[in-house]
Design a protein around this nucleic acid. Sequence first.
DNA 1: CCGCATTTGTTCGTATGTATT
DNA 2: TAATACATACGAACAAATGCG
Lengths: 263, 263
Amino acid sequence: MTNDPDLATLKSRSGQWQVVEREISRAITSGSLAPGNKLPTETELMDRFNVGRHSVRRAISELAAAGKIRVEQGRGTFVEEHSVITYNIARRTRFRKNLLEQGRTPSGQPISEAEIVAPPTVAAALKLEAGAKVYMIARRSFADDVPISLSHSYHPAERFPNMHLRRRAGESVTVIYAAFGIPDYLRQSTTILTRRPIGDEAQLLAQSPHQPVLVVQKTDVDMEGRPIAYSETVWAGERIQFTIENELAEPPPASPVKGQNNE
Amino acid sequence: MTNDPDLATLKSRSGQWQVVEREISRAITSGSLAPGNKLPTETELMDRFNVGRHSVRRAISELAAAGKIRVEQGRGTFVEEHSVITYNIARRTRFRKNLLEQGRTPSGQPISEAEIVAPPTVAAALKLEAGAKVYMIARRSFADDVPISLSHSYHPAERFPNMHLRRRAGESVTVIYAAFGIPDYLRQSTTILTRRPIGDEAQLLAQSPHQPVLVVQKTDVDMEGRPIAYSETVWAGERIQFTIENELAEPPPASPVKGQNNE
DNA sequence: CCGCATTTGTTCGTATGTATT
DNA sequence: TAATACATACGAACAAATGCG
């Protein structure tokens, strides 16, 4: 762990598992192990490199953590294959349009909806008192049927009474906003951070638990500046990157970002 | 790996190292193991949990990968301590001002400067032909003497001839811009992504190689839209988060910007 | 400065459990 | 059901880093 990176010379010193790791890694980048290919079994690698199983497994576990290979119990070990989606954050960001422009097919899947007591962070973002209730919507989004994000949105139950009834009737969030006299709203703040996935996030995003996720937290407010929604979206770090393009020609006026993203 | 998260009941099944991990983790969050504290030695943990060294080490390695503890050979294992810096991205983002507003002390350290052949990604961003030369500036930045970012900036050598002489004379980038008739410039595009650290990044950022980094790539253009600089900054993922605040409908107070500082 | 005790790092051998085919 | 392949676990030994006398 507290080791030097890789220098060319110190092969024999400091771990045979690193030799195994480097050789496999090299085989992958050189193309002799193509994405999707199955690696030799652990026993085969033991023989080939003349090391014990521990060393082989250590090498494999490092490569899996780095996202280069994927291990499946009972089946084998395979070279991982990725492709990165560029998600453009503009003034009017739409999930669907964004992906379509890149030739991807967007889709979504509801996970759960419920009225719950606001967790502390949510209560703080929405400026609610501790113990206040919020309506939570959890969704999973896909690009070409590959999961890319998990989102949780929270709306104050007091501001949107009987939201669950309206949702069950199939009303979209925008429609519900309109019904409560909110024709438009603004993105107040956005926070971007990274961390390792927790709980079942890695599983739901179909990515290695060792690969990081990007977390985007945002708060939307109505035209009077009152918070109406807080959401946190967890993106598969190995499959997404965000871009912000600035229009050059005219000096950009202080136009706030009108945000909206889901579905 | 492909397991349910943690349910209360299935303790005995599916790994004793997980029991050890959970217990230590609990001890940390409950406070009985405070940040900075030294954990019991591996042998002590073996006795305490009645498991072999492998199980103890597996638990420890998972916790270390999660950033909860830090292992030092020959010394021991310690509870990690973090604090997150919120880096505000506004219209005029300044490293120094940003940190000062949070009560942090910013500082920087030059790593290297050189005229090199532009790497492919850099050439593409700056719209240079393959083989064109660029002037590279590598720096490391700190907050309260804790490293938080590594940056590489690239300027076209053709556009800024003899940049190394000017730099050696101590001229700042802004001054050099002015000398070449660039009074102002714009941020054209920004890309944000996450990945695991590579090479010596983890070491330079003093963070675990298992903790992710945030990568911010940006291209600056002059007022005619010609690219003049491309830079890539790698941020310590466990110590930074970005926020974007949008001014709302009414500008509430007058802008409290008094003294300003460039870096 | 040297040597020793402590503590983590690497490696081997071996056995058994669990998932997949 | 059986064979294959990865997962977990025990024991043992030696290497490497650290700190102390």
